[in-house]
């Protein structure tokens, strides 16, 4: 694999992580992380949507009229999101999760990661690297989502993927399930990430 392609894939997962470094797509990362299962489905959905939208927009990049660029991109993204939503609703195992995610599946459309990658990468690059870039960013996003969900489900319900892991004597901490805790947890993840990688610290 050539170096540039490797860079495209690895960069979004660590050094240029969309959530902790670029601060994109926070909305959904907070709302869907009460349970690991929901977070995992959300992570996969976002990865697919970013990847495929980047691919399609990259294919269209030379023909899109500049004036309606944003609208055309949004329409492409919205189409992908609706497809994902419809497929989730149709799958026997995913139906309940789709219901639990409710409006947040729709909000993938305005997840800044998707539009951000199209604007910053897909419009200037060939389809295959764009696809990989989109997928990698989705994975970087999903990684943080799963870390946050891991702590919230473990401390908030004493379970992981719905299976009890902490002894019954553990009293679930309700604060962890409430939305503000997700922000504090995310703050701590950023703290850890930046303490480890000093280049990312702000002055």
């Amino acid at each position: 694999m050539d170096k540039k392609l490797k860079e495209t894939i690895l960069n979004p997962i660590l050094k240029g992580n969309p959530i902790t470094v670029l601060i994109l797509g926070i909305c959904s990362s907070l709302a869907v992380t009460v349970q690991l299962k929901g977070a995992l489905v959300m992570a996969i959905s976002v990865t697919l949507v970013t990847g495929l939208s980047s691919l399609v927009c990259s294919l269209l990049r030379n023909s899109i009229p500049m004036r309606v660029r944003i609208i055309v991109q949004l329409v492409v993204v919205a189409m992908m999101v609706i497809l994902v939503d419809q497929v989730l609703k149709a799958g026997e195992g995913t139906y309940a999760i789709d219901k639990q995610l409710s409006v947040y599946i729709g909000l993938i459309i305005t997840n800044c990661i998707v539009m951000g990658r199209i604007e910053a990468f897909a419009l200037g690059n060939k389809p295959i690297p764009s696809l990989l870039d989109g997928l990698a960013n989705g994975v970087g996003y999903g990684l943080i989502l799963i870390i946050v969900a891991f702590f919230r489900e473990l401390l908030g319900s004493g379970t992981l993927f719905g299976l009890r892991v902490l002894p019954a004597a553990y009293v679930p901490n309700n604060l962890v399930i409430l939305p503000p805790f997700a922000l504090i947890l995310l703050g701590c993840i950023i703290w850890a990430h930046r303490a480890w990688d000093k280049d990312l610290q702000e002055k």
Partner: peptide, 18 residues
């Protein structure tokens, strides 16, 4: 230093949310 900027902002918003 590692909390500067975004990190502390997240925590602030969390507290405001509470």
């Amino acid at each position: 230093a590692p909390l500067k900027g975004v990190g502390i902002t997240f925590i602030t918003v969390g507290l405001m949310g509470m």
